[in-house]
């Protein structure tokens, strides 16, 4: 096994107990959720829907994944006692960084998908026996899951940067920073729109609501100028932003030293 493989192995070995506990908790939540839904369906005579796995999957993918990503560097970079072993481990800073980055960005979504699928394979026959529900296995090969993976890749990179940038409270500080950044950008956008519209329409400017979401902005087909902007937006969102976060996070890892430990 090469050095990078050894680092991956170290990451898995050191957190396998916590991850096993997490997987077991996830299974129990899915089982409990399915069982409660079955009870409700049986006694309220409402038809049983197949939506449990698909509705819970994004929660575990994003919330779990982003928390794990936020904590991935906490001990190795910022713990006074724990930092030393990682810094002195015979591998390059890039290898150490990538081992954590790859596991949280790619291995975690795959692992959680496998856990969801296996959980459905175990839970569904039990539900069939107990309540006579139809067997509906979790299907990971859908466009919705693929889009969630793509969006997770973007947000994971942001939280990866937060994990290496903040010395403690990584997850909450990243959310807080995103909130502040969001408010600042929205204010700038609002000012920009006000100015542009004032120039064009003068004092007869009327306010109106604009409702949009990232999904509609990025994934609905469009042509012409809007289509071009959408492609540029996609490149910025899915490629430039994550790469910027990964590169910046790596530089933080490379320059970390004992004085950063808290």
């Amino acid at each position: 096994m090469n050095r990078f493989g050894l680092l991956i192995n170290r990451e898995i070995q050191t957190s396998k107990r916590d991850l096993s506990f997490y997987a077991l908790t996830l299974f129990l939540i899915l089982f409990a959720s399915e069982t409660i839904r079955s009870f409700v369906s049986q006694y309220s005579q409402i038809a049983f829907g197949p939506a449990t796995y698909a509705s819970l999957f994004p929660n575990f993918l994003f919330l779990g994944g982003l928390i794990i990503t936020s904590l991935s560097f906490a001990t190795d970079m910022f713990s006074k006692n724990g930092q030393q072993e990682w810094l002195m481990l015979p591998a390059t800073s890039l290898e150490k960084f990538l081992a954590k980055g790859v596991l949280t960005a790619f291995a975690y979504p795959i692992a959680i998908t496998v856990v969801f699928f296996l959980a459905s394979v175990i839970i569904e026959p039990i539900q069939l026996l107990l309540f006579g529900n139809p067997v509906t296995l979790f299907n990971p090969f859908t466009t919705g899951i693929a889009i969630q993976f793509a969006v997770y890749w973007v947000w994971q990179s942001i939280f990866l940067l937060g994990a290496t940038y903040f010395h403690k409270g990584h997850f909450l500080k990243t959310i807080l920073s995103l909130g502040i950044l969001g408010i600042a950008l929205a204010t700038l956008f609002l000012l920009f729109v006000k100015v542009i519209f004032s120039i064009k329409y003068g004092s007869s400017l009327r306010t109106f609501d604009i409702v949009f979401s990232f999904d509609s902005l990025l994934f609905k087909p469009a042509s012409g100028v809007i289509g071009t902007f959408r492609v540029i937006g996609k490149i910025l969102y899915f490629v430039v932003l994550p790469l910027f976060c990964w590169v910046t996070a790596f530089f933080r890892v490379e320059e970390v030293q004992a004085t950063d430990a808290v």
């Binding site: 070995q13 001990t75 002195m88 481990l89 015979p90």
Partner: peptide, 19 residues
Amino acid sequence: RKPAMLSEIFYLPEEFPLP
């Protein structure tokens, strides 16, 4: 912090956690 150097240094700190 080149691996070639790190593989030739062992540091036993005063306090340390173990997995």
